[in-house]
Amino acid sequence: MNPDLMTRTLLYLDGVSVSFDGFRALNNLSFTILPGEMRAIIGPNGAGKTTMMDVVTGKTRPDAGHVIFDGKVDLTKQDEAAIASLGIGRKFQKPTVFESHTVWDNLDLAIEGARDPASTLFHMEGEERDRIEEILGIVRLRERRYELAGALSHGQKQWLEIGMLLAQNPKLLLVDEPVAGMTDAETAETADLLREIARTHSVVVVEHDMTFVRDLGVKVTVLHEGSVLAEGSLDHVSADPRVVEVYLGR
């Protein structure tokens, strides 16, 4: 551990390991995200990208290592709800929205505010109305607000989930493969949207789509077999022979 570095970071992973039945999905993984930073994470299938997000959001407990948020909170000691309340939002690789709720209600559930049963029971609709309208506009779902989320196309579900992240207004957004299944035009729009979000939030994006990663124009971390293989600009890591070997050159 490096306490000096830790206190300056928003997210600090140090020596994190996770095994599934003896298979090491994360192997002594360490990296840091600074406040306000946007980072792209790439790596071949099975590199451990999603598992890393599982560890940060409390879904998976690491066998070893530290995950420190905001320079002080040890996330490995918290559960999912507590981590979300600390200000970490997540978009899943497979889009997960509440299918039997309307688009509007999905955003209403996500919007920041008290999460305990007493508050939600007596909650009056109104205050967040404008904010939800605004987000509907940003993610282009205004016309479909009263439709069930289950009826949306794959791409629209992705956008709704990004909209839910916006509604949550977390300090750190973990975005797992946001452009999977999108057309080129949609992909470009999503890159714009994420860059816009990154102006006011810290964002970690996992993506395979290299055009998209280039569009983002941010620092890239390459994962391979559960640890960091290379880090730097996309051009820098693309030139790294080890990266070429395990990933780009396949």
């Binding site: 959001t57 879904k59 559960d79 999912e80 709800a81 979300a84 939002g89 997540r90 899943f92 997960t96 929205v97 509440f98 299918e99 039997s100 709720h101 209600d105 209403d108 559930l109 996500a110 999460r115 049963p117 939600t120 029971l121 909650h123 609709e125 839910m164 949550q168």
Partner: peptide, 19 residues
């Protein structure tokens, strides 16, 4: 709103936790 949360739990319990 509590009712909406209940339905969210019914359909996607773990997703609800992540919110």
């Amino acid at each position: 709103k509590l009712g909406k949360v209940l339905i969210a739990i019914r359909d996607a319990e773990s997703r609800t936790r992540f919110l």
